Simulated scan of single mutants.
Amino acid sequence: MQKIKLFTDSTSDLSKQLLNEHRIDVVPLSVVFADKAFKDGQEINTEKMYNIIDENGKLPKTSAPSPQDFIDAFKPYIDDGYEIIYIGLSSDLSVTCQNASLASQSLDGKVHVVDSKNLSTGIGLLVLKAADFINEGFSSEEVAQKVRNLVEKVETEFVINTLEYLHKGGRCSGVQNFVGNMLKIRPVVKVVDGGMILAQKTRGKRKKALKTLLKNALKNKKEITEDRIFVTHSMDSEGAEYLKAELEKEVKGQVIITDAGCVISSHCGPKTVGILYIKK
């Protein structure tokens, strides 16, 4: 039987429990404050990152693993007879998959890179499906292709609680930030074709925004696969628990709550929460 090792990056936002359960290794991205870099999920967590942002008033930059980082992670397994499947952050948002592909060129074709065209647990859904396919006995080539066939079926949508981080990151103007906060505008963002688009603008109380997110997901409830649905949040366990409870009333799939890592949180800010699933 072929030996296959599954890798992802820290932006898959899978919990340590899920990573360990499915024997998945991580090549992390980093968040960089001034000249100090921290590996996401290993050297820094989201709460610590927010504390640093509050202290200095500036967002960190994010940094992809280098080709050498991937070689260092992959080669010990390849030397032990494994083939590698790597599923990473959308190539429209990061050079992570590009760097993994560069690394694969020096590893005798033993690495299969899958561009998720997604982020957060939109990647995680694909990674766990890959683990399922490996357990079912498919070859590395078959697993990689089956996952690629699922990429366009992943639905990722989340609501942002404040425009402050988008403003600090240069994604909205000071005027937009001021007006948005005055009117309590909470954008609903969707991943489409590997990038993020503004799908809706909700206005008013936060609960209204969460209900909009829930309503959007339940429009497709007949199309939601019955294995896993993720509710992923950045420091908003209350909102995540509300969405989980409401989803469980309507769908048969397993609803799993996960914490968003530093990379996605640095762009969207605290109390961002999303619903992510794969369509049939």
Rank of each mutant, 00 (worst) to 15 (best):
M1F: 14
Q2I: 12
Q2N: 09
K3I: 13
K5F: 10
F7C: 08
F7P: 04
T8D: 05
D9P: 09
S10D: 03
S10M: 08
T11E: 01
N20Q: 14
E21Q: 14
E21S: 09
H22T: 04
D25V: 08
V27N: 02
P28Q: 06
V31N: 00
V32S: 06
D35C: 02
K36W: 08
A37C: 12
A37H: 09
A37K: 14
A37Y: 13
F38E: 01
E43I: 08
E43L: 13
D54F: 01
E55C: 07
K58T: 04
L59R: 00
L59P: 00
P60K: 01
T62H: 05
F70L: 07
F70E: 05
F70Y: 13
F74Y: 15
K75H: 09
P76F: 13
I78V: 14
G81E: 11
G81A: 15
G81Q: 09
I85S: 07
G88H: 01
S91W: 00
V95A: 15
A100D: 05
S104R: 04
Q105D: 11
L107Y: 05
L107E: 03
K110Q: 13
K110T: 10
V111T: 08
V111Q: 08
D115Q: 02
K117E: 04
K117F: 05
L119A: 12
L119Q: 01
S120N: 11
S120H: 04
T121H: 04
G122Q: 06
G122M: 07
D132H: 11
E136P: 06
F138W: 02
F138P: 00
S140Q: 07
S140E: 13
A144Y: 02
Q145K: 14
Q145F: 04
R148N: 06
L150I: 04
E152V: 01
V154S: 10
F158S: 00
I160H: 01
L166S: 00
K168M: 08
G169D: 01
G170C: 11
G174H: 02
V175C: 01
N177K: 10
V179D: 07
M182C: 13
L183G: 06
V188K: 12
K190L: 12
V192C: 05
L198W: 00
R206C: 02
A209N: 03
K211V: 09
K211T: 12
T212Q: 13
T212V: 15
K215T: 15
K215W: 09
L218Q: 10
L218I: 09
K219Q: 13
K222S: 15
E223S: 15
I229L: 11
V231Q: 07
M235L: 15
D236R: 06
E238N: 12
Y242C: 05
E248D: 08
E250T: 03
E250M: 06
E250A: 12
K252A: 15
G253H: 09
A260L: 13
A260V: 12
S265V: 02
S265H: 07
C268K: 01
P270L: 02
K271L: 08
T272L: 00
V273W: 08
K279H: 10
K280E: 15
